[in-house]
């Protein structure tokens, strides 16, 4: 058990069985207390060059210095705790937006309000052998998006920049 804390703490008669991942750059050389994301048991660990020199030792009653960024439960179909789950995992601040989707963002309009082909599915529009024209015939292919665009223009939601 190193670099992950596989928590076996008895909770309600059965072991917790949660894998808490200790991300390498943060914990490569680190000393302090950390909680299990599921049962919140606090462990003391002392990591030197990625090796757990001491711990994990339970420290009941102590407040944890930090939390794992991610944890999951292999025995329960890999049910998981994402980062920034309050009281369980650590927040991750350094993100491109205040939230991450982790899956494709369906975008119909650019940030200045003009149409961009960022959603699926797209109606069929190819010719022979997968050929495409040099023109997005949005009015015919996606009339609903075109209409929405006209509405945006009327509302003044389309700008040059």
């Amino acid at each position: 058990m190193c670099d992950v804390i596989w928590c076996k703490k008895e909770v309600d008669g059965s072991p917790c069985e949660t894998v808490n991942y200790l991300d390498p750059f943060c914990f490569w050389n680190w000393e302090g207390t950390i909680n299990c994301a599921e049962c919140r048991t606090v462990y003391y660990i002392h990591m030197i060059q990625g090796h757990m020199y001491k711990g994990p030792e339970e420290r009941p009653g102590e407040e944890p210095d930090t939390s794992p960024l991610y944890a999951d439960k292999p025995l329960e179909g890999y049910r998981n705790y994402m980062f920034a789950t309050e009281g369980r995992t650590r927040p991750f601040e350094c993100m491109p937006r205040s939230f991450l989707l982790g899956e494709a963002d369906m975008v119909k309009f650019s940030i200045r309000g003009k149409p961009v082909r960022g959603w699926r599915p797209q109606p069929e529009s190819a010719g022979i052998a997968g050929s495409f024209p040099y023109h997005w015939d949005i009015q015919n292919l996606s009339p609903d998006v075109w209409e929405e665009y006209q509405e945006k223009i009327r509302k003044g939601e389309v700008s040059d920049w």
């Binding site: 491109p96 991450l100 989707l101 982790g102 899956e103 494709a104 963002d105 975008v107 961009v116 082909r117 960022g118 959603w119 699926r120 599915p121 797209q122 109606p123 069929e124 190819a126 997968g130 495409f132």
Partner: peptide, 17 residues
């Protein structure tokens, strides 16, 4: 982070960008 795609990738794959 698996978030930004333009569609389609290919005539036969309307769900892939």
């Amino acid at each position: 982070f698996n978030e930004a795609y333009l569609y389609p990738l290919h005539e036969s794959r309307p769900m892939t960008g």
